[in-house]
Nucleic acid binder design. Sequence first.
DNA 1: CCAAAAGTGTTGACTTTACACCCATGC
DNA 2: GCATGGGTGTAAAGTCAACACTTTTGG
Lengths: 225, 225
Amino acid sequence: MPAEAIKVTVDTVAMAVQQGQLEILLIKRKHDPFKNLWALPGGFLEDDDSTVEIAAARELLEETNVGDVYLEQLFTFGDRERDPRGRVVTVSYLALLRQDDLELRASTDASGVAWWPVLDLPKLAFDHRRIVEYAHQRLKYKIEYSAAAFSLLPPKFTLRDLQSVYEAVLGRSVDNRNFRKRFLKSGVLQELAETSQEGSYRPARLYSFVEQEFEQLPDRPVFVF
Amino acid sequence: MPAEAIKVTVDTVAMAVQQGQLEILLIKRKHDPFKNLWALPGGFLEDDDSTVEIAAARELLEETNVGDVYLEQLFTFGDRERDPRGRVVTVSYLALLRQDDLELRASTDASGVAWWPVLDLPKLAFDHRRIVEYAHQRLKYKIEYSAAAFSLLPPKFTLRDLQSVYEAVLGRSVDNRNFRKRFLKSGVLQELAETSQEGSYRPARLYSFVEQEFEQLPDRPVFVF
DNA sequence: CCAAAAGTGTTGACTTTACACCCATGC
DNA sequence: GCATGGGTGTAAAGTCAACACTTTTGG
């Protein structure tokens, strides 16, 4: 039976916002096919993985040292010619990382793992470019009706940080008065006593995300700008 | 390598609206496991299938005689215990059928294929219940911002037909004045010269869907009621 | 006192919702 | 002429988009 020959992999588009840019985590391939090209972190589904999502988390941790992360299944790509080695069906995932997780990861290993701006990617292995585009589109939709933005931020953040996440993901600027009004009215932000001091100018108030309040919001699209 | 043992299947949730009810197409299993239980139409991905979607279309046609249908990938389920025969990862699809296709299909074969109301399903094989629930939720979202409803209708339909599709999918009634206003204003409906005569009362105007106009609509959520 | 980013309100246009009666047809 | 589903408008509330200046801080 031909079905025997089919293999299943997982690939993860791990996204973060850094200095106002949306970036993804890539690894440099050490073997053929596509040796020396950049690719998404991922690998084969194994019998030990009780779910496909756990396989994605395992591969991400093994290859990039990133753990404890928001993961969401995106799409399954299985076109016959997508892998020169044979029929490989890949289940793709979106991972959203917080800025402060980023620090840890630089430690991984200097050579094979790097962040790349989504808008300026190198040539990618397999059909990974297509997967990245799909992930980017999904995040653009998702940030408008879900709490996805908060997975891209540390626990305490300023309204400017939050707005920068929206602008990086959507790829355009948004009106700061309307933006603040909307979030402050929504009730999902907890104003903290602390402020953030970044330079020789007015310090910004810090906020945290109140998941409880988010769940009680009326219906989807919540944060459209 | 354990990955060798993994198999890939496709399963399709084929939905249609009939007499105001949302129904799905099920087949009765002739073999173990889950012999005599109802299940989604589907089967193994084969090397001849150039894409996974084509595999889903092929299986749907083979098992239910349904062809030429809107198909959309839903989600990939791959939990270790979902199939007692071994590790089977299934890529699920949503199919939307038109009422008038339904007629043809009754012909298929009296025994093993049947329509079941989504709100009153029999016990299903594998994790197919979960797949159906996922599909139903997706369709509820999708009908509000896409032209999905028109895939559930024949080429000519009344505004009542259209509204019935929304009510069946959403599981609640909607205000008919607002509903009509919205659709007539949107420009996606072409008013036809014909009317539909169903009984001893006023005949209803027939409309057709203008895909072109739909594509030019501003942005998502379009048809929220 | 200067530079830099934080923070703040109003208005007009548009969209959404709620709501009840007359119309056209076949029998 | 009656039963049945087809078809229609308005007003009030709420939401969205556009727009520019003052405040606070460190140096």
